[in-house]
């Protein structure tokens, strides 16, 4: 998805991991993914630069759909579909 499309996405679950460093955001995403249904969308908020590369790779390995990343002021919003 491009930035305009991502900005319109309404996530079913939001995970705010901005207070943690690697691997905190990834583990927060792992915990939360178990709490949403297949087909639902989750957004992960992270201020950790490594997370924007970790989450897409994790999605690929685990069979989730990485939708894209939005850059906000001082953090990222990373979207994925279970």
């Amino acid at each position: 998805m491009n930035s305009e499309e991502l900005a319109q996405v309404k996530a079913d679950r939001s995970v705010d991991a901005r207070g943690t460093s690697c691997p905190g955001p990834l583990l927060a995403a792992k915990k939360a993914i178990g709490q949403i249904e297949k087909g639902q969308v989750m957004e992960v908020l992270s201020a950790d630069e490594g997370t924007r590369r970790d989450i897409p790779k994790w999605c690929s390995k685990k069979g989730y759909e990485y939708l894209g990343t939005l850059e906000e002021s001082g953090f990222f919003k990373i979207f994925l579909r279970k």
């Binding site: 690697c22 691997p23 905190g24 990834l26 583990l27 995403a29 994790w58 685990k62």
Partner: peptide
């Protein structure tokens, strides 16, 4: 511990 976190994320 960081590496273990990565391993945990990937089950």
């Amino acid at each position: 511990g960081v590496i273990l976190g990565g391993a945990a994320a990937e089950d």
